[in-house]
Design a protein around this nucleic acid. Structure first.
Lengths: 150, 150
DNA sequence: CGTTTTTTATTGCAAATGCAACAAAATTAC
DNA sequence: GTAATTTTGTTGCATTTGCAATAAAAAACG
């Protein structure tokens, strides 16, 4: 059995750890960069979709977003046609941090793909996207309280 | 820029979330399965190496291992020639849970690689191992307090 | 040898995380 | 239309996480 999952876990923890240390400089605490980039790239997104996109619990996302709001990185706006949802938008301050996040992420990507040919990098991305799509079905399923069978 | 890192992050969080839910059945709390499998596969490993292997902070590993010990999954043994280190070994109970962890992980791997040919799966593993090796250098570097330049 | 540095392990905070439970708006079903 | 279900969001609580600081054994260095 090709154990790609352990590799993925190691890579993800290492990268997250690095990012968290590096973004402290921009007053972002643990995990916040994850939410902020996505809100910048999807202005008007709602919490539910954001959590789904990041693959994190709704309640965790709720608190992370609340903190981003309190610290002035984003703002929550009510919707005219739907009183329940709160749309999320980056503030000036949030947008000003965005380039730093991208630059850091790009650098990590470069490091990760060091020694890869253009074809290999492309191939790696395709394979990972496929893995992600395979796994997200299970995530939805299990998160909704269902039990996998194996 | 091929953003493989976001894909990896999503996959890792989704899988970790699934595993944590599924291992509750075996009285393992969040994250513990990570430590237990590795101790089973590397009996006598010390905390420091374990943390490095998993890519997690030393102090986090320390507490996770303490809990595994308190709950009877593993035990810490002093070394005869080195009074500082504590070698970690699975107990009977720990070993009895091991097959379940492997079975779950295997299943997740199967799901992840659904639709992959044998060659593709092999290729994916190779690429990920390479990425992991590229990234772990940076992780060591940053964890030791150094600053990446980019 | 003695001293300096590195390795290994732990604890004290402060913060993030996530399940349970709840609430209210929106949507679907009848 | 109303009732049942789903969607969206939040808090309470218990746990995990990780940076700082500490300590002590071991290893390196002179």
């Amino acid at each position: 059995m090709k154990d790609i999952l352990r590799e993925i876990g190691m890579i993800a923890r290492a990268l997250d750890s690095i990012s968290n240390i590096e973004f402290k400089e921009h007053d972002l605490t643990k995990g916040q960069y994850l939410y902020l980039v996505r809100i910048c790239e999807n202005p008007g997104i709602i919490l539910e979709k954001l959590a789904e996109m990041i693959k994190v619990d709704r309640t965790t996302a709720s608190r992370a977003v609340k903190k981003l709001d309190m610290n002035g990185f984003i703002e929550k706006k009510g919707d005219q046609h739907n009183k329940k949802i709160k749309r999320l938008y980056p503030t000036e301050k949030g947008q000003s941090v965005y380039p730093f996040i991208i630059r850091e992420n790009d650098h990590s990507n470069k490091v990760a793909l060091d020694g890869f040919s253009e074809e290999e990098a492309e191939r790696a991305l395709q394979l990972l996207q496929k893995v992600r799509m395979n796994i997200e079905k299970n995530w939805d399923y299990v998160k909704k309280g269902n039990k996998r069978n194996y």
